[in-house]
Design a protein around this nucleic acid. Structure first.
Lengths: 197, 197
DNA sequence: CGTACGGTTGAGTCCAATCAAGCAGCGTGG
DNA sequence: CCACGCTGCTTGATTGGACTCAACCGTACG
């Protein structure tokens, strides 16, 4: 199934009749408040499972950031698949367990870290697949916009922008273009992320 | 296994060699930053599973709030148990899935809700087992201190206190004692919690 | 060339944090 | 029994980091 950029293919509160496996592109997962405030709970890239919530309605929405491809399984089909391959269940438990750990890390970030620490954590997150990586440097391509980063980190777009330019003036990063970040001092950023100062 | 109040029985970063099932009391699960900032990621009461993280080290700490009893399984024993009873695996997946949903809800709270909304959410949370419940009122007994509530909601103890007294002056709650809360207008609190105003 | 959109930058505000007293409950020991 | 100190909670005054509001900039695109 192909999903165009900006298209919502899971809507929060809707009947959870399907299960997805992302095979290409980047997806944002989010929750909304009635007045429009949004919290992005995570980004899903190739390989991620979506909608493994064993509940009747989706607890979050999912929207394609760029061109996305997903494998869609109807819920009964998934059930049969799980019955036929018990190893699949074990795998899903592992995945859920990893996501739980990531979620707890994110709670720490949202509840207790400063804007500076949040941005640093975001940049050096292990999930962030670097394009190029030489000694203590790394080149990142961010598929998401500032808006998404802000809603992921519990900040505003302005604070994200300001904090990034501050990192730039401090020589910690470079910003060749809006969607590209060069980490010039990964150890320093990691130190900020973990509040070791 | 009995755990005395205040005793840490899972420490973050320690080798994850055991799996626990809480059978009595209340446990706080938390993550720490090097400078002492704490985020409580959840409270576990009777029936909750702990340490199902399929990783080699615990991603969070666990500490008894009051007198706690837990069932402890060594990791290999759990493995055998899962192999013998595949239904157990299914059950664990359900549990993990539910916790993931709760974690996402908490991310929304921590990232986007105001102090007022956070406290209201905390008070009317479905997990909160009411002692007495008549029409739109409810009596709660909180096993945790203000400190724990603050660290759970990403606030300070002072803000928790102030917000609760504000609810009191507004006639939404009563505070017979520090560990007791009477919800006088659950619908109104629910409305605040979900930002429907 | 003009418009639109995403990002940056600046000025001012505000909500929650910090700093600092006070207060109430409670177990201890004189 | 009551002063004492301890601990947890509340309340007040002030600060500050992130938000809000607003202008500006640059790139993409019709």
């Amino acid at each position: 199934m192909r999903v165009a950029p900006g298209q919502v293919f899971i809507d929060e509160g809707g009947p959870a009749d399907s299960f997805f496996n992302v095979t290409a592109g980047t997806v944002r997962l989010f929750k909304l408040l009635p007045d429009g405030r949004r919290q992005i709970t995570g980004f899903a890239v190739s390989g991620h499972f979506l909608g493994l919530a064993m509940s009747s309605v989706y607890a979050f929405g999912a929207e394609a950031i760029d061109q996305v491809r997903v494998c869609r399984f109807a819920r009964p089909k998934l059930r049969r698949l799980l019955d036929d391959f018990p190893a699949m269940e074990k795998r899903l438990l592992e995945v859920a367990s990893d996501e739980l750990i990531a979620a707890q890390e994110q709670m720490l970030l949202l509840g207790r870290k400063t804007a500076r620490e949040r941005l640093a954590s975001f940049l050096v997150a292990p999930s962030r697949l670097s394009v190029a990586c030489e000694h203590s440097r790394m080149r990142l391509i961010l598929p998401m916009a500032r808006n998404d980063i802000a809603d992921y980190l519990g900040l505003t777009i302005e604070t994200v922008s300001r904090t990034l330019t501050r990192f730039r003036t401090e020589g910690l990063i470079a910003l060749p273009s809006a969607s590209e970040v060069l980490l010039l001092d990964v150890p320093a950023l990691r130190q900020i992320a973990d509040a070791l100062n």
